[in-house]
Simulated assay, not measured.
Amino acid sequence: MTRPTFSRDELVAAFETFEQTVARAAETKDWDVWVEHYTEDVHYIEHAAGTMHGREQVRTWIRRTMSVFPGSYMTSFPARWTVIDEPTARVICELDNPMRDPGDGTIISATNISIVTYAGDGKWCRQEDVYNPLRFQRAALKWCRKAEELGTLDDEAAAWYAKQQAGTTP
């Protein structure tokens, strides 16, 4: 089967729209607008959460992930850099995942590599997120320690933090 080809301009424009939608979703917490940028049969590989098949599985996962700490404290997901790979219709990028200010202007974040495959008509048919979950855990722990120090650690984050401290943390 031959993959359709898309111009660099179309890939760049589609990814810019995708990024704007992600920014809007992060701001409003309406993840449905983000999910609508995927094809109905999207193949989404999230190494810590597993592989999802179809838009509805992605929707369920993102709503759950972004409604509890630490996901709910991530404020944006800007691309630090991108590579447009025209022959494969892919955009490869490093995404930053900064957490909200713990109260003193500190920026705490972790990054991941995302590989998204374009299907045309503004839709993406595949995404793979590659990262080290321990780096995200360390960032969330650092955020909790800072918020605790500043007296801004709320109940949700404190419960997560206590659970982490009860186990072995890096």
Rank of each mutant, 00 (worst) to 15 (best):
M1R: 14
M1V: 12
T2Q: 13
R3D: 12
P4M: 02
F6Q: 05
F6A: 03
S7K: 02
R8T: 09
D9H: 10
E10S: 02
E10L: 01
L11W: 11
L11R: 10
V12T: 14
E16I: 04
F18Q: 08
Q20L: 05
Q20C: 05
A25L: 02
A26G: 05
K29W: 00
D30I: 01
W31F: 15
E36M: 03
Y38N: 13
Y38E: 10
T39V: 13
T39G: 10
Y44S: 12
Y44R: 00
I45R: 09
I45Y: 02
H47Y: 05
A48L: 09
A49G: 12
M52V: 08
E56W: 04
Q57K: 08
V58L: 15
R59K: 13
R59G: 03
T60Q: 14
S67K: 01
S67H: 04
V68N: 08
P70A: 12
S72Y: 01
S76C: 07
S76T: 04
P78A: 08
A79V: 03
W81C: 13
E86H: 03
A89M: 07
R90N: 08
R90Y: 01
C93H: 04
C93P: 00
E94P: 00
N97I: 06
M99E: 01
P102G: 05
I108N: 01
I108P: 03
A110M: 00
A110E: 00
T111D: 09
T111G: 07
V116A: 09
T117R: 15
Y118H: 14
Y118C: 08
A119I: 11
G122T: 12
G122H: 10
K123C: 11
W124F: 15
C125I: 14
C125E: 15
D129K: 02
P133R: 04
L134R: 06
F136E: 09
F136C: 02
R138G: 02
A140K: 08
L141W: 07
C144A: 15
R145F: 12
R145E: 15
E149L: 08
A158C: 06
W160M: 09
A162S: 13
A162N: 14
A162M: 10
K163N: 13
Q165V: 00
A166R: 14
G167L: 12
T168Y: 06
T169E: 14
